[in-house]
Design a binder for these strands. Structure first.
Lengths: 233, 233
DNA sequence: CTGGACGGATCGTTGAACAATCACTACTGT
DNA sequence: ACAGTAGTGATTGTTCAACGATCCGTCCAG
């Protein structure tokens, strides 16, 4: 038994389900602190502090840090400590460059209707719709990412999935900064729905081009929201 | 000071240079054990054993294991231990699927002659040539991977670079099994040289298509060598 | 004002210890 | 003889306390 704990397993949120281990608990915990803004970009995250805060040993915290590093949620500078990455517009462009390579290629490579797997797409679209209706932009953003991860999952490649997972984790970092404005997710929910429809009707090439313009516009939206944010800061 | 050590820094080989830290030392050490065949696919790698063998604390070994896991050189089963991944033909296909998406996309996306960066390509080709002349297939394989990593590096994307690094680490795992026959690298050295020439003369589209057939043939070569290996095993 | 010595804080790493879990063996009951 | 179970040993997961190494900011001397 550890310290007070109290948090316990979260079940719903994370996909990986590494929670039975203490290091895994710290991973989701610190992950939430980062994406929820308690830890701001550029902040140093002290091992001792996290150890005290989460009630686990410093050594276990170190292990958790390696995992978070793995997902790009933490950067490690030797002998200096772990920091919440300072995401720059350049990073956004880099992330989207990879997305523009990966996602359309996956869609263009599809040959048959994998209906069961595609249901994840419509589920994500539905979730995004209802979240958007509630003006719940954080959840709309999560549903959005779930959509695109499910889209890449259609390729059935574990390595592509892993890459996409990391990209989305880094994107979440961006959203933690830009105050989730409606313009960032609102206009894109229906465009995802359109892409899902195209996929479900087997019109893969049309879906791919729709996806390409989607990504270009999404990148622009984030970039402008980003620069607006930087001015006020 | 640690234990006997003796190995020390290697300097030349790895690019990452994480060697000043003890965990980093263990990473390159165990990495070599794996790629050099001392650790076979499917083997369990005990924490205590590595700790004794490398002269560092078990806790440090655990950290090193997380890093190796990160590169796909180790898989971790909770409460059971770390294992050298058993690479299947399915993994090879998956790795090459990603390569076929990534590498041609990078080349096609090039717009200008980045001569200084392209010198890494010719350097890798030269190294591969001389290694092949010596029948030194392990080094020829390394130079081969260096070539393709340098090729992806032309895009100037840190995330693409990281992805490619992981892919090559996993490929090394394959080569550790198939006994580096000449047919695996020999025919491909000159094809890389051809691609490098096309790139240096700015004929990016031709380079991309050459790269595509290269990757298809390379995958086939590995796959056949692989199945031949499985029959004898 | 420049520069080097000092100190505090944090990281890097160790070693020992104990609980939890797994794999394997030996025993029991039918 | 054999299935199921309890026991046993080994390995992992995690904690704790400690110490050297390194970095950063401060203070003092020139």
């Amino acid at each position: 038994m550890i310290g007070g704990m109290g948090a316990g397993s979260r079940g719903g949120g994370g996909r990986g389900s590494v929670t039975p281990t203490a290091a895994g608990t710290v991973v989701v915990l610190v992950g939430e602190w980062i994406t929820e803004g308690r830890l701001a970009p550029g902040d140093k995250v002290s091992e001792t502090w996290v150890a005290a805060e989460s009630g686990v040993s410093r050594n276990t915290v170190r292990e958790a840090f390696r995992l978070l590093e793995h997902d790009g949620l933490l950067v490690h500078e030797p002998n200096r400590g772990a920091f919440v990455p300072q995401v720059t517009p350049l990073d956004v462009r880099d992330i989207y460059r990879v997305r523009r390579v990966l996602e359309p290629a996956v869609v263009r490579g599809l040959t048959e209707l994998d209906v069961p797997r595609m249901q994840a797409l419509t589920a994500a679209v539905d979730a995004a719709r209802s979240a958007a209706a509630r003006q719940d932009w954080p959840h709309a953003g999560s549903a959005n990412m779930r959509f695109h991860r499910s889209l890449v999952a259609l390729a059935g490649s574990v390595r592509l999935d892993a890459t996409m997972r990391r990209l989305m984790a880094e994107l979440r970092l961006v959203f933690a900064v830009v105050e989730h404005p409606a313009e960032l997710f609102g206009p894109f929910v229906e465009r995802n729905a359109r892409i899902a429809d195209l996929l479900l009707s087997g019109r893969f090439l049309e879906a791919a081009t729709a996806l390409e313009t989607y990504l270009a516009d999404s990148e622009d939206a984030i970039l402008t929201a980003f620069s607006r944010q930087e001015l006020t800061a």
